[in-house]
């Protein structure tokens, strides 16, 4: 039992104020015998009430003192009932034993023995059943606790994932919406006139993000690759992940970029762009 909680509930204080039920009264008395913390708390609370009573003390009239002393002189004190010693019972029982016919005793003992064995067996079985049941329940409880803790772990990791995802979306949003970021539209070529893509480019710090939602799904074994055209030469900016619409932020060392372009290349990308497969291009 949680002693601190018990004390904090205020039941001891209510007890001291004489405001508890008979059951609670016995409970406090009993617990104060078992737990020293409760006994101490009770003592302190009672002491507070004693100090309080002293603080509101009021001398009763002298005549009352005389009258009370007179009264008690005529009143006998209640004697505490002495506890009957166990020995006495034995003494009474002994002569009966002697009088009883000896022949019958062994039979009675036999039956007694049979009854004892029966009782022991029954109680053992009951105990065994009860403890098996208890084991089972405690096993179930452990399993439930495990389950609860597992699902709470799963939830926690999901929550973490979501949080990370949200942070990256927020970061992207703030990059895209920053005043120094320009939005460049890459338009479709003859290969696929309706294809398009958008590059968000900040020339001041050389950062870029590509939004590729306007591109068709690449054929199997193929992957789109992003290029920057610098002084007429294509510079590899990496392949696009098929599953995500946005690339992570790309850092560009060279600020002298003339255009961005996307080609379809064998999976993994190429060293130089396959110009026949140029899907979209846009000037800076």
């Amino acid at each position: 039992m949680d002693i601190k909680e018990y004390i904090a509930s205020g039941i001891i204080d209510s007890y001291v104020l004489g405001a508890v039920s008979e059951q609670e009264r016995q409970e406090v008395q009993c617990l104060s015998k078992i737990y020293p913390e409760i006994r101490e708390e009770l003592r302190i609370a009672e002491e507070a009430m004693e100090r309080y009573a002293e603080s509101i003390a009021k001398a009763p009239p002298a005549a009352l003192r005389a009258s009370i002393l007179e009264k008690i002189a005529a009143t006998p004190q209640d004697e505490e009932t002495p506890i009957v010693p166990l020995k006495k019972v034995e003494e009474e029982a002994t002569p009966e034993k002697d009088e009883a016919p000896i022949r019958i005793l062994p039979v009675a003992y036999k039956w007694g023995a049979v009854a004892s064995v029966f009782i022991i067996v029954t109680v053992s079985l009951l105990y065994f059943n009860a403890s098996t049941e208890a084991d089972k329940l405690s096993g179930e409880l452990t399993a439930m606790k495990q389950e609860a803790s597992d699902s709470s772990k799963t939830l926690e990791s999901k929550l973490n994932e979501l949080q990370l995802a949200m942070e990256s979306v927020q970061e992207r949003e703030s990059f895209i919406n920053a005043p120094s970021t320009r939005k460049l539209l890459l338009e479709g070529t003859d290969v696929k006139p309706d294809a398009n893509a958008t590059v968000y480019y900040d020339a001041d710090n050389g950062n870029a993000i590509l939004a590729s939602s306007g591109l068709p799904a690449p054929d199997t074994g193929k992957q789109f690759q992003l290029w920057a055209i610098v002084d007429g030469t294509p510079v590899d900016l990496g392949v696009l992940d098929k599953d995500s619409t946005f690339t992570p932020r790309i850092s560009l060392d060279n600020a002298n970029i003339q255009a961005f372009a996307i080609t379809l290349e064998p999976e993994g990308g190429s060293k130089v762009p396959t110009l026949e497969q140029l899907y979209v291009i846009g000037n800076v």
């Binding site: 205020g10 204080d13 209510s14 104020l17 609370a45 002491e47 507070a48 009430m49 100090r51 309080y52």
Partner: peptide, 16 residues
């Protein structure tokens, strides 16, 4: 009621 009883006794204790 019980908690207030606790606070009240606590206050008394403090006072004394």
């Amino acid at each position: 009621v019980k908690t207030r009883a606790r606070y009240a006794i606590g206050e008394l204790r403090k006072t004394f």
